[in-house]
Design a protein around this nucleic acid. Structure first.
Lengths: 191, 191
DNA sequence: TCGCATTTGTGATGTTTGTCACGCATTTTT
DNA sequence: AAAAATGCGTGACAAACATCACAAATGCGA
């Protein structure tokens, strides 16, 4: 029997760190497969964050809601991304952000307990997590740099170039909340 | 004989992951101790990035210089911070940023070769690097959030609250380059 | 298919921030 | 000690961006 979801994760992981089929079967047993519908909350602000998520398919937004009711999008999590409210996850505190489905989404989830267990049992898996964390950190730094060096129009053009698919999949309002400009300004930039 | 610098690193590491004196001696042998003077470049844009640095004492800035000759400060690295141009370091490419001393600075440096060697030889050390990388990633996300949710004055006040020491140690011009505002605007905010 | 919510564009206006210019104090260099 | 560079504040003006208001278009559920 063929499991395309498993193959996706397997390729994703072994691209960075090689694993045999047996090893992969073992590490997979630490994950749970879950499906969510559009608009479902995977993580809700104020609640516990028990899991970290690998996106098999679909699209998520990691959102911070400020005191004025405005939403700010820290990241979009697409296919092959790992996402969570990492601070709350690793420190076992309540979520300050929400993780919500923009589209129907399939994920593998791993609890912190299993994350730690797996890291201890399989040093190669800890190596994988380390590499992923490095790229996440680097990606965040690049986003910081775009705020420092670029104005709204330039950030808009950079995103259009780097993630053209996003413009077909999410409403402009959300892109504005990601770019840090108002909806109206974004609308004027794109015309 | 007493080595205060070694003690600093030892405490810094064992706070997250415990090591015996023997183990620490072994891991320390993978590092080099170096001293730099104010204004020295530790990493220079366009050059190779052979090392990652732990700051024993002093103060560094991680800077990106844009096409217009403006400098943008990605981060200040103080005592107990780890810093490098991580993209260039892990991918063995030329530096896109510079790491320069704001004050006379002492560091421990580790080459990528030794970083990988150490990670393989001591799983606990890989665990330490993983935890450090997580906190770096989380810190970057918080910085992104401050750009999304706050205007110049609010970001200025947040920095003042979170890093009050910085205001005594670095010129306002650099703080402005970190906050993403012009020197003049920052000057008006603080008066 | 109808009705309603969501999405998007656009004008008018005000606020925030950047840029250029200047003066003066402080620090560094020679 | 003189000269040069750096740091810092401030005025005047321009550019970027937010906000409020409204209308048209689109999508989606009953």
């Amino acid at each position: 029997m063929y499991y395309p979801m498993q193959e996706k994760l397997k390729e994703h992981i072994t691209k960075l760190v090689p694993f045999s089929n047996e090893e992969f079967g073992f590490l997979l047993s630490h994950f749970e497969h879950k499906k969510y519908k559009k608009n479902d909350f995977i993580i809700k602000e104020g609640k516990d964050v028990n899991n970290c998520y690998y996106v098999i398919s679909g699209l998520l937004k990691l959102v911070f809601n400020d005191a004025n009711g405005k939403q700010h999008i820290v990241s979009f999590a697409m296919e092959d991304w790992w996402e969570s409210d990492f601070f709350a996850y690793f420190n076992q505190t309540k979520a300050k952000m929400s993780l919500q489905c923009i589209e129907d989404t399939e994920v593998y989830s791993i609890s912190l307990k299993n994350y730690n267990k797996l890291s201890l049992e399989m040093p190669k898996m800890e190596r994988f997590f380390l590499k992923k964390s490095h790229s996440g950190h680097i990606a965040s730094q690049n986003r910081i740099l775009s705020f420092l060096t670029s104005n709204a129009k330039e950030r808009y053009l950079q995103l259009l170039q780097q993630q053209p698919l996003l413009f077909q999949r999410v409403p402009k309002t959300l892109l504005a909340a990601y770019l840090g400009v108002s909806r109206e300004t974004l609308s004027r930039l794109s015309s």
